[in-house]
Design a protein around this nucleic acid. Sequence first.
DNA 1: AATGAATGAGCCTTCATTCAT
DNA 2: GATGAATGAAGGCTCATTCAT
Lengths: 177, 177, 177, 177
Amino acid sequence: MFAGFGYDAARMEHIASLANASIGSVYHHFAGKERLAAALYVEGLLDYRRSFMRALRESGPGGAVTVKALAANHLAWVADNPELAAFVLSSEAGLRRSAAPEVRLARRRISEAIGSWIGQEAARGTVRDIPPELFYAIVIGPAQEFARQWLTTARESKPIEDAEEPLAEAAWRAVRA
Amino acid sequence: MFAGFGYDAARMEHIASLANASIGSVYHHFAGKERLAAALYVEGLLDYRRSFMRALRESGPGGAVTVKALAANHLAWVADNPELAAFVLSSEAGLRRSAAPEVRLARRRISEAIGSWIGQEAARGTVRDIPPELFYAIVIGPAQEFARQWLTTARESKPIEDAEEPLAEAAWRAVRA
Amino acid sequence: MFAGFGYDAARMEHIASLANASIGSVYHHFAGKERLAAALYVEGLLDYRRSFMRALRESGPGGAVTVKALAANHLAWVADNPELAAFVLSSEAGLRRSAAPEVRLARRRISEAIGSWIGQEAARGTVRDIPPELFYAIVIGPAQEFARQWLTTARESKPIEDAEEPLAEAAWRAVRA
Amino acid sequence: MFAGFGYDAARMEHIASLANASIGSVYHHFAGKERLAAALYVEGLLDYRRSFMRALRESGPGGAVTVKALAANHLAWVADNPELAAFVLSSEAGLRRSAAPEVRLARRRISEAIGSWIGQEAARGTVRDIPPELFYAIVIGPAQEFARQWLTTARESKPIEDAEEPLAEAAWRAVRA
DNA sequence: AATGAATGAGCCTTCATTCAT
DNA sequence: GATGAATGAAGGCTCATTCAT
């Protein structure tokens, strides 16, 4: 809802009917529109974070597999949650700023995990010594930029999977030692 | 205006007063709020396209210089036009779709230029043979993702230039043969 | 409201307050100002049609009684619903055209009823054989023209009933065999 | 302009362009929209009055000819000036009330002429002794009601002349002694 | 006298929020 | 807890009128 329409275009009435609930009911669960959107945003971000952390953890040691897994995971998450992705990734500046402590926490966790992982791998000599705050942008950026195009234009026509391998490969080449 | 506030938060009254004009005057020049935003969007996109094409053309032959120039140019444009960038890059789905033929044309021109450049360089063996529709995402994605973070959080505190070299280098490594 | 002020001069705010309702509430019941006016117009026309048809039906056989009843009924309806009459009879060209199928249907019903009645009476030799599409104008025209004058100028000063007998008599003389 | 659209829907800009003049120019000649409409209304009414008085005067003695001429003249004037007719006859209550002294004068002249004519003819025994204030409604009403229908629906398809004879005949029968 | 861009008061309409049931 | 009709503040837009050229 917020996703396909954007925060302002999403009408409370419409949101409620999509949730098979009455308007009044929605107001029993959320203090208002902004809080509802924030809750959705947080939920989306936490889900994304879960999948990101899992990819980071489960890919085992060795830079290549992990980096590729992160890029591929990004695309997969977008493909699995296109609506949520469109909303969360659309970086509604307002929401980003307001959004609850949970959000800040999730972000910090991602940053820290990346930082420690890089330190580890850089020490091992598998990835270059890249400023940690750029690492996310370098690894996820291509997948993210492609996902954005895909979400706005090709969502139904082209399978996003086709882009997985080249984008994962590119991410890895960008950071490998 | 649209940039700093977002489409919906921007009040016609405020826009008019910023332009030292009356509301009526604004309506003399633009058919309505949406058309005004679309005009701004098109203007921004065309300006971006100009700078992109210039970077592509003026960087001379050889893959490395050009690819790095494209990434660096992206950051420089965002730094030079932060407001416009925030607006254009926030990819208001609605606007993207509506936005006039000019937009479609600008996009196609960029795509074509990239396509022919890749063909050239791939033939010369300087860059890998990457699906053209992914090339933009791979080269610009990292700079774009970083720019997004920078615009929402660090705009005043950190100079964006610090990220230029690492991101340009990453872009080049991602595509070089 | 529309009646006394005219479509354009009637403010939604005023209409709402006359109905002891909020503006929002009015919009809950009618899609917009035009639809509200159309609804009123249709309601008025249907009410007029009801009274017209009753007069036609209840006056029993014999041309004179019926024709006089139609003219008298017209005046009576205007006297009973001066506001509504002023609105409906002012034939807002715009509304006439837009106004729903109900309106067209009501009009056609009146035409048909008149047509069949004339055929009947003409066959019986009580009324002249007049083109049916002129019959309404001939019988109702005088009452209508007088009503228009009365509504705009004399509404409060002169009782409309004084004109009933002469106008009914005139209508009858105009069509009797 | 006012005719086809109604007072409120007629835009000054449109009026000006129809007159091949600039908006500013219109304001040089008329103090404002209302005065412009009033001027047009007065002009129309005076023209109608001229044609009415001519019909009354030129038809020579004898009730039948005159009465029929009045009805026929009404239709002819409407046919010759459909736009003006739609405007003048549409009884814009507001204008009617405001409209300048000229209007009141024109109306009074018509009333007086009718009054004296009736007195004359009634004395001669050609027409019934009808209250003068009803005479206009009785003689002109049918033609007027028909004209109204014609203006709103059939203006281009059916020639109004076809109705002339029956309506004139009806008018005469309605008032003849 | 003519022009038409600029002005801004005022109106229709939307929609988040409330509250009586 | 649920419902959804009612509320009314707020914003986009229109258009008669003005005025500098």
